[in-house]
Write a protein that binds this DNA or RNA. Sequence first.
RNA 1: GCGGUCGUAGCUCAGUGGUAGAGCGCCGCGUUGUGGUCGCGGAUGUCGCGGGUUCAAACCCCGUCGAUCGCCCCA
Length: 434
Amino acid sequence: MADKIHKPRPISGFPEWLPEIRAVEMQWLDKIRAVFESYGYGSIETPSVEEIDVLLAKGETDKEIYTINRLQAEESDDSEARLALHFDLTVPFARYTAQHFNNLTFPFKRYQVQKSWRGERPQKGRFREFTQCDIDVINVDNLPLHFDAELPAVMFEAYQALDIPPVELRLSNRKIVQGYLQGLGVEDITTVTRTLDKLDKIRADGVINALSELGLDETLAKKCLAIAEIKTDDDSFADKLSSLGVSSPLMEEGIAELKFVMQNLAHLPKGSIKADLGIIRGFDYYTGTILEAYLKDMPKIGAIGSGGRYDDLAGSFINQKLPGIGVSLGLTRLFAVLLEAGHITPAAKAPTQVLVILPDESRRAEAAATARTLRTRGYNVELFHSDAKVKKQLSYAEKKGIPFVWFPPFKDGQAHEVKDMTQGEQLKADPENW
RNA sequence: GCGGUCGUAGCUCAGUGGUAGAGCGCCGCGUUGUGGUCGCGGAUGUCGCGGGUUCAAACCCCGUCGAUCGCCCCA
């Protein structure tokens, strides 16, 4: 034993799982990727770091990004101080698209499953290191509207593949809220929408109070609130909207778009799609369709995915107009929350399907050969690591959840046997054709 | 950055001023080639860290670090 032990502590906001839990997460990742690829999206990976200037080109995220530097760096050496860990995958994607513009085929459809980092204070369902599953399509000059329906559908299908509690997609369109508030004569639209975004949390009264603190009179505040309260299962949101008596060209454009999207998502299970004009989204690069995904039974944990359309995300990287739409599935939040809620059934502690017993050291070569034979036949096989008592070897299989234990011959001429650990029965078997 | 709560065995926690505990887990034994259950035995702690009060501190006080929940913001 060492003189001093550094007692390990969890690092706040940086989750890690036991093998049996990680195995489930890996299955999730496989399923999500399969859904993405089934629509023809291809994978890319970008570096964990980007230049700070790139990250700050869009959005207002200055204080939550982690910058990097070398521990041994000279004080005068700031060659790496310009780098920071990415806080999402959309900005790196935009940079990537601009950088590889000549070699990409448009519309460029890609997915990206990677970690992201945000230096916020962690709390329930909020991490500083988390995995995002992003899927975007980006095109030159303009992007057909039907992608605004395709991406939410892909996202929903990905959730469906995971065997999790019911998910609801809430959709809106930036142009509607923007146009509406402009029509009302609201000046500070960003602050007002940010307040409306809190409707679920602080309720109608809270929103009214917050808005009057911003200097809006009560009538105006109520009108602002009215739009955020519109939630419908189909395109009837438009009727409710028109009854508010405000109109603008921008708003009408948004209404038409959202109607189109809702109609093109009608094939999804009833109750899983909502037009919700209270959906705002924090990032300011969104210009049209916006959406958030929630667990129906656990809305309080926040969105488990989100996304939207942007007119020109890569505009600051290249002199081309590149509109796109993307959605991001917040894997870590979803996984962690469902794990805590007991919805995740742990897998076996190891992928081993067969444990080969080591009768004694003198038979190791023979047992290893048996293990190899079984492996070539496609099984995950472990040879026990020492010639411990059979009792101990079986107990190891039991603890690790290994379903089969293989008994190679203990004496010359003896037959192989295999034991089914769940049934308890043990039969003669041939490693060549078991 | 701000506020609340909590730090005792690997884990979950009990212990409110007088010898450091339980359950689970871990290791061993219950003989010869067979797991789970059961029985018996065993190991493991600077009671987060530093200071103060006291004859005496896991316990009271101050500070600090960490975790956690919430606010801001967000997946």
